[in-house]
Amino acid sequence: MANTKEVRKQISSIKNTQKITSAMEMVAASKIKKTQDLMNLGKPYSSKIQEVITHIATSNSEYSHPFYQAREIKKICYIVVSTDKGLCGGLNINLFKSVVSHAALSQKNGQQACFALIGNKAKAFFKSVGGEVVASADNLGDRPNPEDLLALTKVVLDMHRDGDIDQVFICSNNFVNTMTQQPKVNQLVPLQHSEDESLINSHWDYIYEPEAKDLLDGLLTRYIESLIYQAVVENVACEQAAKMIAMKNASDNAGELIKELELLYNNVRQAAITQELSEIVGGAAAV
């Protein structure tokens, strides 16, 4: 039978672990609010820019931007948004699974795949799995800077412009609520037309300074940048929520383990006392 000292040692070590996990849980819980706020702060920009783009796209049918043209798909680029740190349950691995299965499916159709990675975890994953990596960005922190993503966006969009890639997907987690985060793979380029009837039927137009084409070029790039930024910020919110849940589970499990070990400890102690008593009684009887 295990001795009491060993069990006591084990209990105290698990208690220390529990302290750490519950502290991490609280840290994550306090960060959730902040990251969600960050997620909402970017919304006015993306909704406004979408409004403007929809309008230009519908009023200038003679000019079709490459981002809108669907061409034969030979190569696909996946922008994979992951976290920098672990300890957030299955958040990253679920996302990678859906990316890999999506890529495998398109490979079956004879399309090549390449990856642009955001976050350390994606880098580590694709390093071990393999795959062509065209650009990467990491260590963005809890408050990602839009500027830190520009380089990656530029690499991907330039590749699209030069015809190296024909389709771009963005893969990130969707924040449903604190308990649920859903991996999603969305098409970024070519942009999907949102055919808003009310806009097509209205006959007003902007004055463009300088040319509509130049403005559309700039605006579409900004739009895609903002979509990527939104995905990254949403993923950060997902990370904190998943981390909180994972750490809560870990703390709960540690609590259960401690309970079991305490029971064992009491059993062992009681057994030792009983044994000692019976030895004394046996000794006395022998005398």
Partner: peptide
């Protein structure tokens, strides 16, 4: 619709090269 930072094309280029090098 304001940009978050000053955007010089040359700056973007340098950053893009950096990202590619990292990859």
């Amino acid at each position: 619709l304001s940009d978050t930072a000053e955007r010089a094309d040359s700056l973007d280029e340098a950053e893009a090269i950096k990202a590619q090098e990292a990859a």
